[in-house]
Design a protein around this nucleic acid. Structure first.
Lengths: 188, 188
DNA sequence: ACACCTGATGTCAGTTACTGTCATCGCGTA
DNA sequence: TACGCGATGACAGTAACTGACATCAGGTGT
C-alpha cells in the first residue's frame, strides 16, 4: 500500500461509498475513508472538495451527455422533444447499473446534506439544459420551464426505475413519465 | 443589551441577513452574527440548527400555506388546477415584500451552500404537495409529477417576479408561467 | 418577603471538516 | 546520474457544531 498505488481518486470514492453504507455518512470521518484507501485525510481533500463531493464524481459527465443530446436533437424537434432525446441518451448510461444506483441512492436519501448536494447537481443540469434550449432558439421563460419539466421527469423516472424490477428499462420508464407529465399538465 | 432582550431569534435572523449581505456568507462567522444580536455563538445554535438555517425561518409556514390551499381546492378541480390555487395563495404572502425578497435572494445566489439549502426546502415543498395531491385521490406518479411541475412554475415564476417592475404582481406572473409550462409540454 | 422552580443564556472543552504551508517521495528526463 | 515535477505526507490552524454544566431573570407558591 505504498505512496504510488494507481487510481487514488477511485479508491477514495469506493472506500467512501462502502463506509457511508456500512455506518452512515455522519458516523464516517474523512480520516477513516482516507485510511481505507491507503491515503491521508489531506490527500482526500486534494481529490474532492468536500466530504459530500466524493459521491458525485460522474455528475459532470452525465450533465454533458444530457446537454449534448439536447443540442444535437433535430432542428425540427420541439423543445420538449429535444429534452426527450436527452432522457433517452442519459438512460443508456444506466444500463446494468441498477444495483449500484440503488446502493448509492440509499446512502443519499439517508442523509440531508447528501440530498442537498444531489439537488444542486440536478439544478446545475437544469441550468445546462435551459442553456442548450436557448442556443436552439427557445425563448425565456419557455427554456427554463422546459428544462425544469425535463428534470422533474428525470427525478421521478429515476426513482421509479430504481424501485422497478430488473426487466424494466430506464428509457421506457422515462418515456412513460414524460407522457404522464404531459397528461397532468394538459388541462384548461 | 442585557441577557433578556426580547425576540432573540428575530435579532439573530436580522443580523445574519445584514452580515451575509455586507461581507458575504463565507466571510461571516457565527460568532459575529451572535455578537451583533447581543448574544453568544452557543445561543445562535440553540435557535438555528446551523449557519444556513437562519435564512429560512419562514419556509415551514410557506409550505403549510401552499399545501393547505391545494388541499382545500374544490374537489372537482384537476390536480394541476389545485396546484394553481396553491400558487395563488402563496403569491399573496409576497405582496409588499419584493425588495426584501430581492435582498435575500441576492445573498442566496451568491453562495452554493445557501443554494443547496434553498433547494432542499423547495424539494420538501414538492414532497408536501405530492402528499396533498395523493390525499385528493391522485395516483402516482401523477401526484409527484404534478407537484414537481408546480414547483418548477414557482421557481421560474419567483425569479421572473423578482426581476420584474414593481407593478407586476406575483400572482399574475405565476399564472402566466403555468400557462407557458402547459404550452411547452403540449406537443406530440 | 422569601425560597424555589423553570427556561433562556453564558462558559468551556472537545470533535471534525476543511485550508495553508512546507517537506518528502517516486518517476521520468536530460 | 543529477535534476525537476507532480503527488503525497506532516503539521498547524480556523471555524462550524455539540455536550455538559453554571448562571441568571422572571414567575409561583407560601
Amino acid at each position: 500500500m505504498g505512496r504510488w498505488e494507481p487510481n487514488a481518486r477511485g479508491r477514495l470514492a469506493e472506500a467512501a461509498l462502502e463506509l457511508y453504507g456500512e455506518r452512515g455518512y455522519e458516523q464516517t470521518t474523512v480520516a477513516e475513508i482516507a485510511k481505507r484507501a491507503g491515503l491521508t485525510e489531506r490527500t482526500f481533500f486534494r481529490h474532492y472538495a468536500d466530504k459530500r463531493e466524493v459521491l458525485f464524481d460522474g455528475s459532470v459527465a452525465l450533465q454533458e451527455l444530457f446537454v449534448k443530446a439536447v443540442t444535437e436533437a433535430p432542428e425540427s424537434a420541439a423543445p420538449i422533444d429535444a429534452i426527450a432525446a436527452g432522457l433517452e441518451a442519459v438512460s443508456k448510461v444506466f444500463v446494468g447499473r441498477r444495483e449500484h444506483s440503488r446502493q448509492r441512492q440509499a446512502v443519499i436519501v439517508a442523509n440531508a446534506e447528501l440530498q442537498e448536494r444531489e439537488l444542486i447537481k440536478l439544478a446545475s443540469m437544469s441550468a445546462g439544459l435551459a442553456d442548450a434550449l436557448r442556443r436552439r432558439g427557445v425563448a425565456e421563460p419557455a427554456a427554463s420551464l422546459t428544462a425544469e419539466a425535463g428534470l422533474a421527469v428525470f427525478k421521478v423516472g429515476f426513482e421509479l426505475w430504481i424501485a422497478a424490477s430488473e426487466e424494466r428499462e430506464m428509457a421506457q420508464v422515462m418515456r412513460e413519465s414524460l407522457d404522464e407529465l404531459k397528461a397532468v399538465t394538459a388541462s384548461g
